[in-house]
């Protein structure tokens, strides 16, 4: 049986690693593509943008409440571990914020290729109406 300390360390580091990876991948794509593509996307998918900031709001709420409780508990017992539960919640919702903000997941139908038009593949049999040899 692993101790809670170790579980806390592994969980938060996984959350933080995913956060970093999502932002770095997003940043490398942003340098290549047109910034207007990203801005038009957050304009068209405003719900995702609002949901991202809602996740950030939950993270901040849990940070506030968790650390107020931890401050009060530290008066009697400074070795309290309640801040570890707080940190797991905060880092999880921070990860959700970054994932929704960057918009890399869930994937969209069209790739971010800087506005380059995709060549349409003609479907032969439907257009010509006869079998292709």
């Amino acid at each position: 049986m692993m101790s809670f300390d170790l579980i806390y360390g592994i969980t938060t580091s996984i959350f933080n690693f995913i956060t970093f990876i999502f932002f770095i991948v997003f940043w490398m794509k942003l340098k290549k593509m047109d910034i207007n593509v990203f801005l038009a996307r957050i304009f068209l998918k405003a719900d995702r943008f609002i949901a991202a900031f809602f996740a950030l709001w939950i993270a901040e709420i849990s940070l506030t409440i968790g650390y107020i409780v931890a401050t009060l508990m530290a008066i009697w017992n400074p070795y309290t571990l309640i801040w570890e539960y707080t940190n797991i919640s905060v880092f999880f919702f921070l990860m959700v914020f970054f994932i929704l903000f960057t918009g890399l997941y869930p994937r969209r139908r069209h790739k971010m290729n800087g506005g380059t038009p995709v060549q349409p593949q003609p479907s032969q049999s439907v257009q010509t109406g006869e079998k292709q040899q």
Binding site: L6, Y8, G9, I10, T12, S13, F15, F91
Partner: peptide, 15 residues
């Protein structure tokens, strides 16, 4: 994004 990665790395190292 960078500081959160460093937090995770040092937390895991300490644990």
């Amino acid at each position: 994004a960078v500081t959160v990665l460093l937090t995770g790395v040092f937390t895991l190292a300490q644990k």
